[in-house]
């Protein structure tokens, strides 16, 4: 039953999925790493990105591949707004800042779910036809679904671009510096709020990108973010907070571990493998694989 082909197929699927998890998680990693803020509504950001993609398709017949940049741009704005209206105040909290961040974004998550249910109804949506949807490439008998493949490539590209952005551009360095010392950067004329708002916008835009890709092959309903949120947190923590490369590596590891666990244990327990690996890693390296915080 467990032929070599089956194993390779499982691992290939796991790798693709892992890269996608990485893409979903990178926005979280960015926000975490640069502002030390938890976004408990990350799953809901993914959810509305998927809805946005769906409605662009349903009303304007725009293929998700084309609407991805639009969705990312819209999410950029949304992320910045969330920072300015909510997170900015959460970070100002003089006491229990960590808890305030967790719970204010948690409340936001609930509101977003309620709004989604209110406006879109709880019914399940799906994009039936699209450029990539339902198509698969077969290489040597190993099936690579096109949406996941494109998503994986996009993930690699996004990580590469992000890495360059943070380390090679002025803005990226400004983000780093603002994290290190908000007071000092103010002296140099950098508006902390502006930098952070843009940081949140960027993080949200990355989620938007992943949401657009996910909408091609996944179902959409108000609670869809929940299943991915926990995986995203574990991915980022596994790779280490503060490390963009860590999120990338974390995603790949999670995807492969999930696939491997399903080969050994009953599939209903495949998440146990992911969680166990996380615990193992942090037991040995308490700051994750590449974490700097």
């Amino acid at each position: 039953m467990l032929t070599a082909e089956a194993i390779i197929q499982s691992l290939a699927s796991g790798l693709l999925m892992g890269l996608l998890y990485g893409l979903i998680a990178v926005g979280l990693a960015l926000i975490f790493g640069l502002m030390d803020v938890v976004n408990f509504a990350h799953g809901e950001f993914l959810m509305i990105s998927m809805y946005a993609t769906f409605f662009l398709f349903a009303f304007f017949a725009i293929d998700p591949l084309l609407s991805a940049p639009l969705v990312a741009a819209a999410m950029f704005v949304f992320g910045a707004v969330v920072y300015l209206l909510i997170v900015r105040f959460a970070m100002r909290a003089k006491a229990n800042a960590g808890m305030v961040q967790i719970f204010s974004t948690f409340g936001l998550a609930i509101v977003m779910r309620g709004l989604a249910q209110f406006f879109f109804t709880p019914d399940y949506r799906s994009i039936p036809q699209s450029a990539l949807g339902g198509k698969t490439i077969s290489i040597a008998g190993i099936f690579l679904p096109e949406p996941q493949l494109v998503g994986a490539l996009l993930s690699i590209a996004a990580f590469g671009a992000l890495y360059l952005f943070i380390n090679r551009t002025d803005f990226g360095r400004a983000l780093e510096a603002t994290r290190e010392d908000p007071g000092a950067v103010a002296l140099v004329g950098i508006d902390k709020n502006r930098v952070f708002a843009l940081g949140w916008g960027l993080g949200a835009a990355l989620v938007g990108l992943s949401g657009a890709i996910m909408a091609i092959f996944f179902y959409i309903y108000p609670d869809v973010g929940a299943s991915f949120a926990l995986i995203a947190y574990v991915t980022v923590a596994l790779g280490g907070f503060g490390s963009v490369f860590g999120a990338f590596a974390g995603g790949i590891i999670v995807g492969l571990v999930e696939a491997t666990t399903a080969l050994i244990l009953p599939p209903s327990l495949k998440s146990v493998g992911i969680y166990a690996v996380y615990l193992l890693v942090v037991f040995i390296r308490p700051r994750g694989l590449f974490g700097s915080m």
Partner: peptide
Amino acid sequence: IKYRNNSPSLSA
């Protein structure tokens, strides 16, 4: 095969 409901992926 018993699988976890609402799994993000069913490839395996």
